[in-house]
Amino acid sequence: MVRIRVVLPQHLRTLARVEGEVTLDVEGPVTQRSVLDALEARYPVLRGTVRDHVTLKRRAFVRFFACEQDLSHEPPDARLPDAVATGAEPLLIVGAMAGG
């Protein structure tokens, strides 16, 4: 079990009623999928807002950043960087720049 730091975009912090970073206990390999599973288990209101309910695909205007890299197009079961897995760096879930 490792403790992961996640930064949510403002609208999802409001929806989940959290402030600042979220910390999540993740079992097994630290991947996009395992972190999002833990996030949705802790905050069920976020189900469907980051990834599709059924296909579990990332929503088009959501991005995953960490360690100054865009990890959005990495496979969901690819391991996240060590710095995220150790809690040294957060995983950033970001609303893409898309006008409006």
């Binding site: 929806l15 949705e40 288990a41 069920p44 209101v45 189900r47 469907g48 807002t49 309910h53 059924v54």
Partner: peptide, 25 residues
């Protein structure tokens, strides 16, 4: 409140949160 996301609403039969109020399948 998004319906179905209060603590007493959360658990499905498998013990996992449901959070289905925004699911339109």
């Amino acid at each position: 409140n998004p319906p179905g996301t209060k603590p007493e609403d959360l658990m499905g039969p498998d013990g996992m949160p449901k959070g289905e109020s925004n699911m339109f399948l």
